[in-house]
Simulated assay, not measured.
Amino acid sequence: MSGLLALLDDVAALAKVAAASIDDIAGAAAKAGSKTAGVVIDDAAVTPKYVEGFAADRELPIIGRIALGSIRNKLMFLLPAALALNAFLPQAITPLLMLGGCYLCFEGAEKIYHALAPHQTAEVAADYDIKDPAHLEEEKIAGAIKTDFILSAEIMTIALAAIPESALWIEAATLALVGVMITVGVYGAVALIVKMDDIGLYMARKARFSLTRALGRGLVLGMPKLMWLLANIGTAAMLWVGGSILLHGAEVLGFGAAAHLIHELALGAGQAVGQAEAAVAWAVTAFIDGIFGLGWGLLLIPVVTKVIGPIWAKITGKAKAAH
């Protein structure tokens, strides 16, 4: 009897440890997930464009396939790579984060540049030359998954940097949880966004009450404005997050003058206002980070389009020819 009680006591102790570990994983996942908010907003803002021009009955299947590709990116490729880097080459994490920050700054600045000086890229022009809708759908999904891979790499790296040092399995479980939560949240929101006009149209036509029909008409009329707002929020988030990553990375590498100056300016602005000091300091920091990200991204545009782009086109062209 005493042996049975001792066994039950051990089981209870193990259950407590497991529960504490689960709490640790959930807490770390929530903290790490919050650090990736800017990239997540951009991911949610970018994805709806991949279903533009397709029949309504193809929108959700396309989003579903992109979401599955995103899960595969995060769990099969990026999670093991992130853990391996953290275990064997942790000093590479900051430079990789900064490389991702450069990508975010370039993408955000390129969107602004394109809005101010519209130009059609070869990839966009090629889309209009594709006559087969099924082939176009495959091309769009493949392009979305490639873009997701870069954004997911940034998300997983930021999340890994935010996770407190712990056992390998806890870090792996936390990263997996972050990856799944973000993917479900992003693509669930995207699915709701792209179908919102259909929901509104149904409400406007079929609802029994005039107020509900009016709400439906409001959804139909408001969706283009919401998409415009999301796109702009996504662009701003890219620049803010990208600039913040670069400045923080430079500080970690020993070049912290710019980050310290921004911190002092934000702190001074918050103290000058008096009320909502922390919110003002955060807003000033985010604004300056975004301006820095925009400037850096504009500098990268000619480098990417004139140097990196042609080299990459040759590499991928040769790979396709060999295949």
Rank of each mutant, 00 (worst) to 15 (best):
A250T: 11
A321V: 08
M203F: 12
A81V: 04
A214F: 02
A189S: 15
A67W: 01
V190A: 08
A259H: 08
L192M: 11
A207H: 01
L265T: 06
P48S: 10
A45S: 14
A44D: 05
L99T: 04
L230G: 04
A18E: 15
G216A: 04
T235P: 11
R208S: 11
T157D: 05
A167Q: 15
F106E: 05
I262A: 01
I62A: 11
A28K: 02
L219V: 14
I63S: 10
G268A: 06
M1P: 13
L116M: 12
W312R: 00
A189D: 12
T183M: 03
A20L: 15
E277F: 04
G218I: 07
S152F: 07
G33R: 05
H323Q: 11
A20S: 15
L215W: 06
E107N: 14
G268H: 05
V280G: 09
R72Q: 00
K146M: 00
A87C: 07
G38W: 04
A204D: 05
I71D: 02
K35D: 10
A44M: 13
V11N: 07
D289P: 06
G317A: 11
A191G: 13
F88P: 05
L192G: 09
A258G: 04
F292Y: 05
L8A: 11
T235S: 09
I150N: 09
P90M: 05
K31F: 02
A159S: 12
V220T: 12
I66Y: 02
I311S: 06
D42Y: 14
V194S: 04
L160H: 11
L192V: 13
A162S: 11
L177D: 03
R65A: 13
L299T: 03
G218S: 09
L75V: 11
L201C: 05
I182R: 02
G218L: 10
K306D: 10
I170D: 01
A19P: 10
A19D: 14
M98D: 01
A173D: 01
A236T: 10
A81W: 01
G33K: 07
L96Q: 09
I63F: 05
G243D: 00
L247E: 00
P133S: 06
A6L: 06
A313H: 15
A191V: 03
A236W: 03
M76P: 00
G143Q: 11
R72I: 12
A67K: 03
V194L: 06
F54T: 00
D197P: 07
K318W: 14
L261P: 03
I182Y: 02
M196A: 15
V190S: 08
L7D: 14
A279Y: 07
I141P: 01
E264H: 05
D148W: 00
D198W: 14
D127N: 13
L175F: 04
P133K: 08
A258I: 14
Q275H: 13
A87P: 11
L265M: 10
A269W: 02
N232I: 09
H248K: 12
L246C: 04
S70G: 14
V284Y: 02
A204K: 10
V178R: 09
L78Y: 00
M223I: 15
A159M: 07
A109G: 05
V304F: 08
A189Q: 13
G64S: 06
L267E: 15
S152L: 09
T316S: 10
E107P: 00
E110M: 14
